[in-house]
Structure formats: structure tokens, C-alpha cells
């Protein structure tokens, strides 16, 4: 065990997968220097500039090159520096990567990892702070992973690289410098398997990425008020572990769904729809959602703080499910 940041766990895992498989290479803007946060720091020195390729600011084309290389049998890890810029790569990701296996009748494979990061809270304003994962979950053929801790970041990245499909691996910049105990050898975490972060009997909170820690903080506060919250982290949105959530709801009968993205059209809406279909009879209250409001992300610090969903909204949402009276 050692104390590692989320970012260092990613960096260490990138080195491990590159060491283990010569087909793996990294490309993206400023990756030789490590990028703005340092996720790829030291890789160029360790593996050379052929396998750690700096690219111009051409998101669409670098994504397409990664897809072509994956179709040719390599294992590219392409970095899109901010998820806000994935808009420029969506043609390649959606029209090429996601469909190649299907449209070719199984002839082509795209074992690609696209690493990117989202999330607000850094006073970076509306074009460097967004959470776009729901768009990606809407595309058949893509997998979408959102690690919420350093250990998960390491375990999920290994599985993403080993997966024969295009996997979008969405980091959160607010988590990058959080430190935790991480085993020296992290086992791969299969995609599609949720983690119960805290067991509880009264209400279930399903939270992704940065909001997992917020949910745990809410659970801690609610425990002091006599409410036991179960916190579930799906870890990957596609595939989504409905079974884990539905069986938790069968125990608690109350559900709060939380993510940092805006609520409208967000992945939380999909979770709500899937859970009500799978476990309608188990629910004792309407499902609550905690999300960002339907606005762009403001720059001014007090406004951005007001924008970000967190512990207080989660506590209120949990109470809302508990206060609901059937027929009341």
C-alpha cells in the first residue's frame, strides 16, 4: 500500500499497461510534457516518443488516427484534454469508433481508450468544466467509465485497455489531487460492476464520479440523524449494473440518483427509468435526483459554488424520500 493521488494512480497504471503490452501507445495534446495535470508525466522518458505521441490541436483527427490504429490491431490510449473538447472528436467517436464492429458485421474491432476529464469547481468557466458523459452513453457501441477513487481509476483503466471496444474513460479534475491508500498492485475491475461504498438500510444513493465522496459525506451526516444511507457507485455507466442498484432498492425502498452533469437528459434520468421498470413495487417514494441546474457553468466563484451539486442537496433529497407518505 502507498498513498497515491487519483492522478498518480492513472499515471502509474498507464506505465504498467504500456510495459505489459507493446501494442499500447498514448497520443494527445502535450502528452510528452504530461499535459496540464501531469497524467502522462514521465511516459515519454520511459517508453519513447514513438509510443507517447504529441499531437497538434486536432481533436477529431487524433481520435480518428487512434481508431484506425486500433482497427489495425494496436491499443491506442488517446487523450482529449478536457471533455469540453470532445465535441470536436464526436464524429470520429460516434460515427466511426462506435459502429465499426456492427457495420462491418463483426470484421472490425476498435480496442480504443479515450481518456478525458470533466467537472467544475476550478473557476474554469463554461467551456472547461462540463460533464458530457450522458451524450456518450446514448451511443450504442461505446462504453463509458467514470472512476471516483484512485484505486478504481487504476483498476478500471486496466479493464478499459483490455476491452475489445471503444471505452471512454472520464476522469474528474476535482479528484486529481485527492490522496488515498492504493495497493501496490491493483487488480483489474471489470466494467459493469458497481461498488457499494457504504452499506445502509434506509435510503440508497447512486452517485457517480465526484459525487460519490459527496454522497459519503451526506451519509455520514445522516447517520448522526439516525438515517442509514447505502451509497452505490456504478463505476461504469455503460455497461450499467442495474442489478446492484435494484437489489439495494429492494432493501431500502428509497432512491436518490446524483451526478454533476445537468439533470435534463442526464444519465440519472436513465437510471431512474431503469430502476422504476425493474423495481417499481419496491419503491416507497418517488426517486429523487441531485444534479447541476440547467444552465451553463458560471465563472464567478459564488455562482459556481451555487451551481455545483453536493452534500447538502443529497441530504435534502434523502429526507425528501423519507418524508414521503404513500397516499399522504
Amino acid at each position: 500500500m502507498s498513498q497515491l493521488t487519483y492522478l498518480k494512480a492513472i499515471n502509474r497504471t498507464l506505465a504498467e499497461v504500456m510495459r505489459a503490452d507493446p501494442r499500447v501507445f498514448v497520443l494527445g495534446e502535450d502528452v510528452r510534457e504530461g499535459g496540464p495535470f501531469g497524467a502522462t508525466q514521465g511516459l515519454a522518458e520511459a517508453f519513447g516518443e514513438e509510443r507517447v505521441r504529441d499531437t497538434p490541436i486536432s481533436e477529431g483527427t487524433i481520435c480518428g488516427i487512434a481508431i484506425g490504429a486500433a482497427q489495425a490491431g494496436l491499443r491506442p490510449i488517446v487523450e482529449i484534454m478536457f471533455i469540453d473538447f470532445i465535441t470536436l472528436a464526436l464524429d470520429q467517436l460516434v460515427n466511426q469508433a462506435a459502429k465499426a464492429h456492427y457495420m462491418s458485421g463483426g470484421q472490425l474491432r476498435v480496442p480504443l481508450v479515450l481518456r478525458t476529464q470533466g467537472g467544475a469547481g476550478q473557476r474554469a468557466a463554461a467551456q472547461h468544466s462540463q460533464s458530457f458523459e450522458a451524450w456518450l452513453t446514448h451511443v450504442p457501441g461505446l462504453k463509458v467509465v467514470m472512476p471516483s477513487s484512485a484505486s478504481d481509476a487504476a483498476g478500471l483503466l486496466q479493464s478499459a485497455v483490455a476491452d475489445p471496444n471503444p471505452v471512454v474513460y472520464v476522469e474528474n479534475k476535482a479528484l486529481y489531487f485527492q490522496r488515498e491508500e492504493v495497493p501496490d498492485a491493483v487488480a483489474p475491475i471489470p466494467l459493469g460492476r458497481a461498488a457499494i461504498r457504504r452499506p445502509g438500510r434506509d435510503v440508497t444513493i447512486v452517485a457517480t464520479s465526484r459525487l460519490v465522496a459527496e454522497a459519503l459525506a451526506a451519509a455520514e451526516q445522516l447517520a448522526g440523524e439516525g438515517i442509514e444511507v447505502e451509497v452505490i457507485d456504478p463505476r461504469s455507466l455503460v455497461p450499467f449494473d442495474l442489478e446492484a442498484v435494484a437489489s439495494s432498492v429492494a432493501r431500502t425502498h428509497r432512491l436518490v440518483v446524483a451526478h454533476e452533469a445537468v439533470g435534463q437528459g442526464g444519465f440519472g434520468a436513465e437510471i431512474v427509468a431503469q430502476v422504476q421498470a425493474a423495481a417499481f413495487d419496491e419503491l416507497d417514494a418517488p426517486i429523487e435526483r441531485v444534479t447541476a441546474p440547467f444552465t451553463p457553468i458560471p465563472f464567478s466563484p459564488p455562482l459556481e459554488d451555487a451551481y455545483l451539486p453536493g452534500k447538502d442537496q443529497l441530504v435534502a433529497a434523502a429526507w425528501a424520500t423519507l418524508g414521503y407518505q404513500i397516499g399522504g
Binding site: I67, G68, Q96, L108
Partner: peptide, 30 residues
């Protein structure tokens, strides 16, 4: 698509196939 004969893809989005070919060329390089 006919991978057995070297035809790796045909895209209906104009220009979207050019980066894919560069990826194949990069794979040869690596």
C-alpha cells in the same frame, strides 16, 4: 468492409475516413 481483401472501411461522413487511414499507417510505423 472486406478485411480479408484489405478493405478496412467505407464511411458515409465525407472526409471522416482520412484520419482512419493515417491510423493504419501509424500502426505500420509502430
Amino acid at each position: 468492409v472486406d478485411v480479408a481483401h484489405g478493405l478496412l472501411g467505407a464511411t458515409g461522413v465525407v472526409g471522416g475516413n482520412i484520419p482512419l487511414a493515417l491510423g493504419a499507417a501509424l500502426a505500420v510505423r509502430l
